[in-house]
Amino acid sequence: MSSRRARIQARPPVPLIALAVVGVSLFAVPLIGLAMQTPWTDLLTLLNGDIVRDAIWLSLLSATGATAIAFVLGVPLAWVLARVEFPGKSLIRGLVLLPLVLPPVVGGAALLFALGRRGVAGEPIYELTGLVLPFSTWGVVVAATFVAMPFLVITVEGALHNLDGKFEGAAATLGAGKWTVLRRVTLPMIAPSLISGLVLTWARALGEFGATITFAGNLQGRTQTLPLAVFVALETDRDTAVALSLGMVAISLAVLVVLRDRWWRSL
C-alpha cells in the first residue's frame, strides 16, 4: 500500500499536472493583473482619501454587526437543526442554506420587496417605528447578515453533529443544567468550528455586494461599503478602485492566515 502511494507521488500524470496549473492560474492571473494596474507610488495618498476611509469604516462596522447578529441567531438555529427532530426539518435547512446558492442581487431584491417601507414586513415596521431599512446602515447590516449567516449555521451545525455526546451527558449526570451544559461544555468543545464559522461569516459579509446595492443603495458614509466603493470608483477613478481592490485582497489574505490551522494544516 505504502509503496504504491510512493510510486504515484514519484510520477504524477502529466495531464493532471497541466490541468492543475491551468486551474491555479485562473486564481493567480487576475491578482497579477490587479498588481500591474496598481499605482504603487500614490497608493498611500489614494488609501487616505475620504471615500476610502468612509468605505473601510462602514465595511468593518457592518461586517462586524452582521457577524454579531449571525452569532446571536445562527448558533441557536444550528443547535436546533443539529439536536432537535421535527417534521419539515430538511425544508428549514434548505431555506437556511438558500442564500449560499442564491445570486446576492436576487436576495437583495427579495429583501427590498419584503423589508422596504412598502414591503410585506417593512410596511408595518415603518408604520410602528418609522424605521426605513433601505438606504440606511441597518439595511447594509441586514443584507450582509442574510448572505453571510448560512456560513455560520452550517459550520456550527456540522460541529455539533460530530460532537461526542458523552461529555455533555457526563456534565448533565453531574448536575449541570441544560443552559450550563451548553455554555460550559458544548460551546467550548465546538469553539474551533465556531471561530472559523465566525471568520467565514465576517469575510463573506465584508465582501457583500449584490444584496447590499440592491437593498440598501449606495451612499458614501451611510451605505457605501468597500465593494460598492470599488464598483463606483471604477466608473470615475480607476486608481482609487484599484487601491480599494488591493485593500480587499489584503483583508482576504489576512482571513486565510487566521484560518490557516483550520484549513491548510488539516489537509
Binding site: R117, F135, G217, L219, Q224
Partner: peptide, 19 residues
Amino acid sequence: PDTNEPDVRALLTKIEAGE
C-alpha cells in the same frame, strides 16, 4: 441624495417599488 445607483435601471426599480 439618499443613494447613488450604479445605473438607471437600478434607480427605476427602487422608484417603482415605492422605496
